[in-house]
Design a protein around this nucleic acid. Structure first.
Lengths: 98, 98
DNA sequence: CAACTATTTGGCTATTTGGTAGAATAGTAA
DNA sequence: TTACTATTCTACCAAATAGCCAAATAGTTG
């Protein structure tokens, strides 16, 4: 029984898990506006570059973002754009429980 | 800059984080069908009762479920029902990218 | 009361995560 | 080539997580 639960929900759970960090959620929303390089995301967040790079690799592993090289910098793109819709529901703390 | 990111996204991220585990995601979907006691959830999942109880407390802390006592058992309820809509998007691995 | 059931909590271990610093890699430009 | 910039990768550490067992708690029933 437990195995079938893992089969059915592990992929979906992995996507939620990847979104389950404030920095990564910010990155997703920023990429929702426009494709952005690592350096710019680093400036906006204020963490170490290596930390941002790790967060990006988590998002990439979950299939949420992908990237292309442009000159000497890597441009990240929101591949799974539907995750932007999820934020509507998650505003529940502001009194918008659906 | 980083502080404002945490302010804006930490609550939302916490909700995603709570959903970011296969067992908890299963529990959420089960509670979406009907209110369920811990014992029944434990039978369905197959983990130790204490493990299920801890998953439930994670979901409760995130504001996703709540509970009431009925006799000697605790009935859990899906409080934040809008999370059920999130699964539509998260089916992306089955080729339904929105 | 004692015995029983259901659930939570505390303790423990193993694993994962988030963060940093520094080395390694890839491209640009002199 | 060398120097430079941008990014990733490799330890490494502290903290958090997941799992189980056992003890504690809450209610029911005899």
């Amino acid at each position: 029984m437990k195995n079938s639960i893992l089969e059915a929900y592990s992929t979906e759970a992995a996507a939620f898990k990847a979104l389950g960090h404030p920095t990564r959620l910010f990155i997703v929303h920023q990429l929702g506006k426009r494709d952005t390089c690592v350096c710019e995301l680093t400036d906006m967040v204020g963490d170490d570059v290596s930390t941002i790079s790790k967060h990006l690799s988590v998002l990439r592993s979950a299939g949420i973002v992908d990237s292309t090289r442009k000159g000497n910098q890597i441009i990240y793109r929101l591949k799974l754009r539907c995750v932007l819709n999820l934020s509507v529901c998650a505003n529940f703390k502001k009194g918008k429980h659906l």
